[in-house]
């Protein structure tokens, strides 16, 4: 079984998450960690907004917090989200990467180092190429690489860039992505 799922999503992201997350049960056996590009001018927390909409608990990833199954963790606007070797969250306000803070590459690369082949990296819809490099690194560490089928994405640039850059194992249409993630918990080996 896998130890963690990281998801990177940008333009069209909220809609995509609303299709995927309802498929996940409360106490889903694998922690899910999402970097979502969003504007920092929105003051309200997306996690607060989304929590309660699905069975699974959604919360903002907090500094030093231990990563646990049963949660979907969201990045905070204005901060890079990283994972330490001891599977706790770290934050930084280092310069944007790919014009993005949080950056998907930053999460994916640190997650790849922390989880190795226990990691699943998923790139969803988006209008820039953030995450491509990160997904490649996930693959290099033996993790499973997954991309949303571009023709099911609101913005194709991000999934297409990821497919071009990384060795992608699975290309999954949006309406099957929730089911796909669900089945990761049954995968042995």
């Amino acid at each position: 079984m896998f130890d963690a799922v990281v998801i990177g999503v940008s333009m069209g992201g909220l809609q995509a998450l609303k299709v995927i997350l309802p498929r996940l049960p409360k106490n889903f056996a694998i922690p899910v960690i999402v970097v979502l590009h969003q504007s920092t001018t929105i003051d309200s927390s997306l996690a607060v907004l989304l929590n309660g909409m699905f069975e699974i608990d959604v919360k903002e990833a907090e500094l030093n917090e231990k990563i646990e199954a049963g949660y979907v963790y969201l990045s905070s606007p204005g901060y890079h989200l990283l994972i330490e070797q001891d599977k706790t969250f770290a934050l930084s306000i280092d310069p944007p990467e790919n014009f993005s803070i949080p950056s998907i590459d930053v999460l994916f690369e640190s997650a790849a180092e922390a989880y190795g082949d226990g990691l699943v990296g998923i790139i969803l819809t988006g209008a820039n190429a953030d995450g491509s490099q990160g997904l490649k690194v996930v693959g290099q560490h033996g993790g499973l690489t997954v991309v949303q089928a571009p023709n099911t994405a609101e913005a194709k640039v991000m999934p297409e860039a990821a497919i071009a850059a990384a060795e992608v194992r699975h290309i999954v249409p949006l309406d099957e992505m929730g089911e796909f993630i669900l089945r990761l918990a049954d995968d042995v080996g």
């Binding site: 990283l82 330490e84 770290a90 930084s92 280092d94 690369e109 180092e113 922390a114």
Partner: peptide, 9 residues
């Protein structure tokens, strides 16, 4: 220092 971000820098 927190290792993950330091390593990246």
């Amino acid at each position: 220092y927190a290792r993950a971000s330091l390593k990246r820098r």
